[in-house]
Design a protein around this nucleic acid. Structure first.
Lengths: 114, 114
DNA sequence: GGGAGGGTTCGATAATATTCGAACAATTGA
DNA sequence: TCAATTGTTCGAATATTATCGAACCCTCCC
């Protein structure tokens, strides 16, 4: 794995983005990344604890990355993941915001889990 | 099939909605329904011509309905389908708008098809 | 060179989805 | 009652996806 594929902004496809966001684990990842984006924080994969084996986590992060939702930066033995907030806003204005907002609301109403 | 299942507004789930929207055909259906919603028009299934067999169309309409995106009204031998715009706006503000807008933009840039 | 830390890839399994023809329902109208 | 119109459901084939352990790859550092 020399380079990680990232679609160019213009090549980000709506169905792919929506699909990537349709999984609870990936939604949760986006939610967490969204919080840290507020403070320009980068998260390493290890910090994104979803309670699943790392191979599963890796899979979900790949789906997010390849759909254009996240960017993964190589740094030594670590990978730092960030939301492509600006790119997404430019491509699909309001979409990511609506999704993260919807998640935040749901959190406050119920704190299910799973 | 006596009654068609529709989730209550409060029971509409974000992942299910995003999943339903992640398919190109269903996205196109939503796009078409969105246009006609402007003029309070109801569309029968037959008017939603997606170029697929009716069993396939029926399947996609079911996914949309059961996720809470559309409402299907029985009227004789026909079914009239509408977007649950208000319900969705209340549940996930801005989401549907962002999606339909994104589709509209893409249409203008490229008129692919498929 | 050789661990250790941090992730990815492989492989297999199980679960879900998509697709579409054929058969089936329900309603309307002749 | 019969038949046409509109859709839905069934069934089966195909394809995708999720999941996770095991093996592997890199990089840093001693």
């Amino acid at each position: 794995m020399r380079t990680l594929y990232h679609p160019e902004t213009k090549d980000i496809q709506l169905p792919a983005v929506l699909y990537a966001l349709s999984d609870p684990i990936r939604l949760k990842l986006v939610s967490q990344l969204s919080e840290d984006a507020e403070t320009d924080l980068e998260l390493s994969c290890g910090e994104l604890d979803m309670g699943v084996p790392k191979s599963t986590l890796s899979h979900h992060l790949k789906v997010l990355r390849e759909s254009g939702i996240t960017r993964t930066r190589l740094a030594g033995t670590q990978r730092f993941v960030t939301l492509r907030k600006g790119d997404l806003e430019g491509r699909f204005p309001g979409l990511l915001g609506a999704v993260t907002k919807a998640m935040a609301e749901d959190e406050t109403k119920t704190t299910p889990d799973r």
